[in-house]
Design a protein around this nucleic acid. Structure first.
Lengths: 198, 198
DNA sequence: AGAAATCTAGACTCACGAGTCTAAAAACAT
DNA sequence: ATGTTTTTAGACTCGTGAGTCTAGATTTCT
């Protein structure tokens, strides 16, 4: 049933906007256009609701990130534009409203859900890192990059891509113009290629 | 009176450990070894207590960061070890238990205190960035670095220093061995000098 | 259509925690 | 010493929100 989806979506939005503790189940139900009892029918209690909402959101975010990484292929031409494209997409993923909200929730409620944080961290972030490392390794093998440790390279590339966003977007408070996103991506790729370019 | 300090310290610790909403004023008072009424005498209400506790913690963290930046001076010798020293200190600041707790609280309670986030962000993070940019500009002027935009350089340097920590420390969940901290600092400085070294 | 399941509105219980109050006990001041 | 201020323990009020329950409406399946 798509009531379930509506509830999950509303729960995520509301929890993200006002915080888990500050949001009543009544409000989630209202936002989903559903009776409170229906929420309890589907999820049993408030904590389960949060877990499922977070898990669903993390799944969506991971998929988007992986889709961006998929585009990192050796076209035979200059690597820079390809890297910049992928970099920009990863930056956009990171700046997505839901993405900020997800990180905020995980950060915020890690006292309540230490396990969820770990699951998402390992199941989502590490999965993306691994996929990206695979691609870099492949490019290195083809002689397009000069690196020995793909994991170290990925670590720095993602740091260069996402690090500057924290400050610029004020931890998700400020909406980042796409011009700035392109700047960050370009600067990151430039530095990356300085060090790892063939 | 040092009761006040005890309350602030206890408040920060407790709020950080279990979250603002999940922590009762009673518990804070107990942890501070003080009666609940005393807490209300000093701070009026729970929200003010949180604000002051966060502000005090942010002040401490900023001071530590600035002290690290102060050490970035031109000794005349090789720049690398100096940068590595400063970098390591900044990494240590970032990995400090209280530092993680502060960021978690700000992230978590930004729904409740959007203004605090902004104040800390501007008053602390930007202050450190500016101080660091000043030092880099000075080194560039002395011909020890090759850069035109100190702000851009600082942005990337701090990204390289702190970015990898998020994943490695699992957002403050995992305690980072000092060996890893040195690795991260060294790698960051290495990449930084590749691009901006004279 | 008719039976079975699900959904709805809203009243209800109940625990918990913020903030107040009181009367006594420290701590402090001069 | 004595008056003043602060602190203390603990009882108390009161709002809020999680979760339950009920009786009726709506949907779904056959």
């Amino acid at each position: 049933m798509d009531k379930r989806q509506a509830i999950l979506a509303a729960a995520f939005t509301e929890f993200a906007a006002r915080g888990y503790a500050q949001t009543g189940v009544d409000e989630v139900a209202a936002a989903a256009g559903v009776a409170k009892a229906t929420v309890y029918n589907h999820f049993g209690d408030k904590e389960t609701l949060l877990r499922e909402a977070v898990a669903a959101s993390a799944e969506r975010a991971t998929a988007k990130n992986l889709a961006a990484v998929e585009r990192l292929v050796d076209t035979g031409g200059d690597l820079r534009p390809v890297l910049e494209d992928v970099g920009l997409r990863l930056v956009q993923c990171h700046c997505d409203e839901d993405s900020w909200a997800l990180r905020r929730l995980l950060y915020a409620e890690h006292a309540l859900l230490p396990d969820l944080l770990e699951i998402v961290q390992v199941g989502a972030a590490e999965r993306v890192q691994r996929a990206l490392a695979d691609r870099l390794a492949r490019l290195a093998l083809a002689g397009r990059l000069r690196l020995t440790d793909p994991d170290a390279a990925v670590e720095q590339l993602t740091a260069l891509l996402t690090g500057p966003l924290e400050a610029r977007a004020r931890w998700g408070t400020r909406r980042l113009p796409s011009k700035e996103m392109r700047e960050v991506a370009a600067a990151a790729v430039d530095t990356f290629l300085h060090v790892y370019g063939a």
